[in-house]
Simulated assay, not measured.
Amino acid sequence: MSNSLQLTEIAISLVAKNLNPAVLNPDFVKYTGIIPSDWELANQPVYNNNLVQLVYKNGVGIIVQPNRLNVLEMIGGKTPAEIQLATVALQLVEKLSQVEYQAVGINPKAVVGFTSEADAYQYICSNLLSPGSWQEFGGSKVNAGLELSYPLKRGVLNLAINQVNVQSGEQVTPAILFSGNLNYPLTGNTVAERIQDLQQIIANWQNDVNIFQQLLVEKFLSSSPSPSPAQQISASVFSK
């Protein structure tokens, strides 16, 4: 993997039919063993009929909305062995095994830092897009982004590419954000078969992240302008 590419976040998104967010709350996820008892919330939980949001100090979050359950984790400098979102997602599926799951997405995000905003802009508008008069109008440059879709042997890899700023403390670094979504409809004729398929996809999350990183390194970073050295970014990423 390129030394300049930094994985910042991974999310596992479960699409489910008739999912009621109110079934989950901080006590439920702790007392049922979905999360360890010593995990501490980073802030006050959001808990109502349409949204449950639990974010823990270790960077793991659980977000539940009607028909969708997301488990995400901020990566920072964590090794694969330290990443816990798949364990949490598998526990949720086990405890909520009667939910009618329909699809699952493995959603990694990665950034590449650049020395200037101009370099980040040129990466999209000169490396990935053909230069032309369309890039300026009314005295201003276009804010460009790409959305691509790659069919896989099973499922689809969707990729969004956008120019952003990454803030870590008081430092702001121009960067390109790569947002991936490996989307898999579930297979199986029974609930048990679909649950088993879902569990296998979640357990295989590292392979999906490797596919995402391989795509970026081989197809998008091999001939880009020299980015700044990778940084341990555990702060916010915001669009231009």
Rank of each mutant, 00 (worst) to 15 (best):
L186R: 07
D208S: 15
N43S: 10
I195T: 14
A175G: 09
N48R: 06
I106V: 12
T8N: 08
F220T: 00
K57Q: 11
N107W: 06
N107Y: 09
V104W: 03
V64D: 03
A81R: 13
V64R: 02
N67H: 12
V111G: 00
N48T: 03
Q91R: 06
S116T: 02
P108K: 05
K153H: 12
E136L: 08
Q199C: 05
I176P: 04
E40H: 07
L129C: 07
P229I: 05
Q232A: 10
E40K: 10
L41Q: 04
L90Q: 10
L152Y: 00
S222R: 05
F220K: 01
F238V: 01
V142H: 04
K17S: 15
Q231I: 07
C125T: 13
L85M: 12
T187N: 11
A16C: 14
A175F: 03
V60L: 15
Q171R: 03
K153L: 09
F178V: 00
Y150Q: 09
M74L: 14
V156G: 11
S37I: 07
P21C: 07
N48H: 07
D27F: 09
N204V: 03
L198A: 10
F114A: 03
S222L: 04
Q102I: 02
P131A: 13
S149V: 12
D119G: 00
Q102V: 03
E82Q: 14
A16I: 09
Q122G: 04
S239I: 08
A110V: 01
A160R: 08
V111Y: 01
L148I: 14
I62Q: 02
G113H: 02
S140I: 11
N210K: 15
E100F: 14
M1G: 12
A22M: 09
K219C: 07
V209F: 04
L41P: 05
F28P: 13
Q196S: 06
F238A: 02
I35P: 01
V23W: 11
T173W: 03
S37G: 08
Y184L: 15
E9G: 03
A120P: 11
L51D: 04
Y184K: 15
S2D: 12
I83L: 04
S2K: 09
A16T: 10
L54Q: 11
G145A: 14
W39I: 04
G105M: 10
K57E: 07
A110T: 00
N181Y: 13
V46I: 10
S228M: 12
D27A: 13
E40P: 01
N107Q: 10
